Simulated assay, not measured.
Amino acid sequence: MPRSKDAFEGIYPCDFYTPAELLDPDQMYTIREIGRLLQGLDPDADLDEGTEAVLVDWAVPWVMRNADDLVIGEPPTEDDPGYYGLKTDQ
């Protein structure tokens, strides 16, 4: 159900990092790692399953929105996730 803006103690801009701000140009990341980075966490941070699911829900649209600035790496095996990285001139 919708809530009045007055019901919140604080309202903040909905700003997200650009790929260049978020990703190391020499690294490739999984969706789970990108979700952690979007929250200012270490890409290897240990999270409970529910928190990680929420972060993945945020990371997928971020990757799709920023696809023009990203590259995709082939997963090492069929059971591994895909990897995403910053598109560079290399």
Rank of each mutant, 00 (worst) to 15 (best):
D15Q: 12
D15L: 12
D15F: 07
F16R: 09
F16Y: 14
F16V: 10
Y17G: 04
Y17S: 02
Y17Q: 06
T18R: 01
P19W: 00
P19D: 04
P19S: 06
P19A: 02
A20F: 01
A20G: 04
A20D: 06
A20Q: 10
E21S: 00
E21W: 00
E21F: 00
E21Y: 02
L22M: 02
L22G: 00
L22R: 02
L22C: 01
L22Y: 00
L23N: 00
L23F: 00
D24N: 08
D24R: 03
D24H: 06
D24G: 05
D24V: 04
D24E: 08
D24L: 03
P25F: 01
P25T: 06
P25H: 08
D26Y: 08
D26W: 02
Q27L: 10
M28A: 15
M28T: 15
M28K: 11
M28I: 14
M28W: 10
Y29N: 02
Y29G: 01
Y29F: 14
T30P: 09
T30Y: 09
T30I: 10
I31A: 03
R32I: 07
R32H: 12
E33A: 14
E33L: 09
E33V: 07
E33F: 10
E33R: 07
I34H: 01
I34P: 00
G35Q: 13
L37H: 02
L38C: 06
Q39G: 12
Q39T: 08
Q39N: 13
G40D: 08
G40P: 07
G40Y: 05
G40N: 05
L41H: 08
L41V: 10
L41C: 06
D42A: 13
D42G: 08
P43G: 13
P43K: 10
D44P: 10
D44Y: 12
D44W: 12
D44A: 15
A45Q: 10
A45S: 13
A45I: 09
A45P: 03
D46V: 15
D46T: 13
D46N: 13
D46G: 11
D46M: 13
L47P: 04
L47E: 12
L47H: 07
L47A: 09
D48L: 05
D48N: 14
E49P: 05
E49H: 15
E49Q: 14
G50H: 08
G50V: 12
G50D: 15
G50K: 15
G50P: 05
T51Q: 12
T51Y: 09
T51N: 08
